[in-house]
């Protein structure tokens, strides 16, 4: 039995790939190969001041049919996030937005309260809102009420590649929140992505793990395989763990004596 109809939905769009690919900190020339190797259907982007020195545009490197997920990085409060989201939508590539609001420049932790405010505003304006957040069940519930299409808890600080430091709290969100839970930030290795998927995450977002790896397209493929493996394991249902002792997997009769 293969996962033919194993999809998830964001803002009325259905996705079969559960790997959301970041596009930061590596060459534009690798973006296309990364998307292909990742099998990604969603790619994140940032919105920044344009300059005329860079003649190449990232949009030329993203295969057609891939959904763009602009983030609001750089925003320090809800007002700035709303401003960036509106600019992103005006660029004419859909109305998905990943809300990212940070006051803290050392740890880059998301400001949950401002994120709720921005979610409410942007959802009311018709955006498909994916808020990046610190995994807190009460905040996640507020984000649901505010109109989010998914919740994106961090595994560890952005860019740290430290993995699922918040695993127990992400599990609470997975268990209690009806929306897709997409683990964002901190995932540094395919094994960590696989574990998050085994836990029941709907999808994984990764960027720095690829950008700082030795081979971006190959690592994209490694993540894809790990995410698929974790998803299959979740659907299958993991075997139980013994708290003590052992349980033979061989027949308990017919021993040679």
């Amino acid at each position: 039995m293969m996962k033919q109809n194993d999809t998830f939905t964001l803002g009325g769009h259905t996705f079969s790939s559960r790997f959301i690919l970041g596009s930061g900190k590596y060459s534009l020339r690798l973006v296309q190969a990364a998307v292909e190797h990742a099998g990604a259907q969603i790619i994140t982007l940032s919105v920044r001041r344009a300059n005329t020195k860079e003649q190449e545009n990232i949009l030329d490197y993203i295969p057609k049919g891939v959904t763009l997920l602009p983030n609001t990085s750089g925003a320090r409060d809800a007002k700035e996030a709303v401003r960036i989201a509106r600019l992103a939508r005006e660029l004419g590539c859909g109305s998905f937005v990943k809300i990212e609001i940070m006051r803290d420049t050392k740890y880059l932790l998301p400001d949950n309260q401002e994120t709720i405010k921005a979610t409410e505003q942007l959802a009311a304006e018709g955006f498909t809102v994916l808020p990046y957040m610190y995994p807190d069940l009460n905040v996640a519930r507020d984000l649901v009420k505010a109109g989010a299409s998914a919740v994106m808890p961090l595994g560890a600080p952005i860019g740290s590649n430290k993995g699922l430091a918040t695993a127990d709290f992400i599990q609470i969100l997975i268990d209690e929140i009806e929306l897709p839970i997409i683990v964002d930030a901190g995932i540094g290795a395919p094994s960590q992505a696989c574990r998050a998927m085994e836990m029941g995450a709907a999808a994984i977002m990764a960027n720095t793990a690829l950008a700082t790896s030795g081979d971006v397209p190959r690592m994209a493929r490694a993540f894809r395989l790990a995410i698929e493996a974790g998803r299959e394991a979740y659907i299958a249902g993991l075997g139980r763990v013994l708290t003590r002792g052992a349980a033979a997997s061989d027949p308990l009769t017919g021993f040679l004596r």
């Binding site: 970041g22 596009s23 930061g24 900190k25 590596y26 534009l28 973006v31 994140t44 982007l45 940032s46 919105v47 920044r48 001041r49 344009a50 545009n57 990232i58 949009l59 763009l68 602009p70 983030n71 990085s73 509106r86 600019l87 992103a88 005006e90 660029l91 590539c93 952005i158 930030a185 977002m205 960027n207 720095t208």
Partner: peptide, 27 residues
């Protein structure tokens, strides 16, 4: 935001603050 259809009829004036933005790589 200046709608794209208004670029030709929108004149910049002294004291204006203008931002010109585009997509770039990001996570």
């Amino acid at each position: 935001i200046v709608p794209k259809g208004r670029y030709a009829e929108t004149t910049l004036r002294d004291g204006d603050q203008v931002e010109i933005v585009c997509f770039m790589g990001g996570g």
